[in-house]
Design a protein around this nucleic acid. Structure first.
Length: 423
RNA sequence: GGUGGGAUGGGUGAGAGGCUGAAACCAACAGUUUGCUAAACUGUCGUACGGGUAACUGUACCGCGGGUUCGAAUCCCGCUCCCACCGCCA
């Protein structure tokens, strides 16, 4: 959620930034500021009324103490009028406040200066590219065929036991999953991220803290008996560790990572791109999360990008890095780099990681603040990224590393983890 | 599931209708002094929002939501969460 004070002071800049998302926020912002003016007027009047009531209450107490009972009773009479006024103003103020909050919830984050205006994924900028797609002198198979043949991932069995999008991993498929998780976690630890095992369910406050709630609850699985939500990403529990925290020094930097399964309802996304591992309701991911001083955000983001590049390099996968245009960025993001791996058999790019800076957008909702050098309390910056999401990495490994003999070779970096060289 | 106890500032924790935005201690910050990886002393020190260029000032907040009262951290009701013991289960 954007800071209201910023919208007040930098209205033009906010509207200009939001236009990069291809949305015209001017009327919304004007309406918001209009409500804000009203709210502040009511707030002033309410505060004044309360002040008077407080003063009178003290006076009445004084009267009784000194035995001036009649005087006290007379004053009491007067308070009834004040109380009526107070009640009315309170109602007005609360209504305005909730209207303002409701509007703020619906305004996405302002894109950072480097982000270009754009409509959709076609306007994203490729900022880095690495590796070459393998050339096959045979008919390369898509991963869903490989999985079936080698009995390493069973989608139909998942349908039987749970439903579409909940596959079983078997044998070497299961071991490869485990190897990837361990590899990613070890790499993150080596880069200074503290490893966490997080709860897979979160409460409502946490959902609000990272922005899944209130508007996007349809994307999460919900247990209504206990009002808990299955996490769509480890970002939710890991970032909410810091909810309602006030960090006392300005020289902080928190780097955490965690492996979790992720659960996504993916309501409304059917049709293309859902085949095999491309889109699942349950998948595994190692997430990295950082809480930083605003001065260090740019640097932290670059570090995270380098970290993810390192992972893909070690896995020997051809990939590219995109800086998303305004129109393709997530709601809470100020700038996002997407990592896409090229799958030779499917002949397309598969997104395997998304690394974003949120600046104060999440921290504002989380009430995550710190004391700066100037002793002022300010909002922290949050960042996160996938490092990495497993299914599409798996798909790319299976598809790109298939040989003419039908075997899938395991990249050298993974062999210590799989303890087999081929599937 | 049952019974009992609890939730107060960055932390520990006192307060039990007006003298309490809240003792004390710890932490933090600033200064003084002695000098040696630090101690002692003094001072400052909650958050959010509004008004004000500012000094400052007003309001709200003692888990959350209601109620009683001129006045609530304090009394009453509901809820949530935590802790302990018992039961059940991993």
């Amino acid at each position: 959620m954007l800071e209201l004070s910023r919208i007040r002071t930098d209205k033009k800049q906010v509207i200009a930034a939001l236009s990069k998302r291809n949305i015209n926020a001017e009327s919304t912002i004007n309406e918001l500021l209009n409500l804000d003016v009203q709210w502040r007027r009511v707030k002033q009047e309410l505060d004044g009324t309360l002040e008077e009531a407080n003063r009178m209450a003290k006076e009445i107490g004084q009267c009784y103490k000194e035995g001036r009972v009649d005087e006290g009773n007379a004053l009491k009479q007067q308070t009834t009028l004040l109380k009526k006024k107070e009640g009315e103003l309170k109602g007005e103020s609360e209504a305005l406040e909730s209207a303002i909050l409701h509007m703020l919830y619906q305004i996405p984050n302002t894109p950072f200066q480097e982000v270009i205006k754009g409509k959709d994924l076609n306007d994203n900028q490729v900022v880095f590219q690495s590796g070459k797609a393998p050339l096959f002198d045979f008919e390369a198979k898509p991963h869903w065929d490989i999985c079936k043949e080698k009995q390493i991932i069973d989608f139909e069995l998942g349908v039987k036991v749970t439903g579409a999008g909940f596959p079983f991993y078997r044998g070497k498929g299961s071991k490869l999953q485990r190897a990837l998780i361990s590899f990613f976690l070890d790499e993150a630890s080596a880069a200074g991220y503290e490893e966490y095992q997080a709860p897979l369910m979160v409460n409502e406050e946490s959902g609000i803290g990272t922005g899944q709630l209130p508007d996007k609850e349809g994307q999460m699985y919900h247990d209504s008996t206990d009002n808990l939500f299955l996490i769509p990403t480890a970002e939710v529990p890991l970032t909410n560790i810091f909810r309602d925290e006030l960090i006392q020094q300005p020289d902080f930097s928190y780097k955490l990572c965690g492996y979790t399964p992720c659960f996504r309802r993916e309501a409304g996304s059917y049709g293309k791109d859902v085949r095999g591992l491309n889109r699942l309701h349950q998948f595994d991911k190692v997430e990295i999360v950082r809480i930083e001083h605003p001065d260090h955000t740019a640097n932290a983001l670059e570090e995270m990008v380098e970290h993810v590049k390192g992972l893909l390099d070690k896995l020997e996968l051809p990939y590219r890095v995109l800086r998303l245009c305004g129109g393709d960025m997530g709601f809470a993001s100020a700038m996002t780099y997407d990592f896409e791996v090229y799958s030779a058999a499917q002949e397309k790019w598969l997104e395997v990681s998304s690394v974003s800076r949120f600046d104060t957008f999440q921290a504002n909702r989380l009430k995550l603040r710190f004391k700066d050098h100037d002793k002022k309390t300010k909002l922290c910056h949050t960042l996160n990224g996938s490092a990495l999401a497993l299914p599409r990495v798996m798909a790319a490994l299976l598809e790109n590393n298939q040989g003419a003999d039908g075997r899938i070779s395991i990249p050298a970096a993974l062999k210590p983890y799989t303890r087999f060289d081929y599937i």
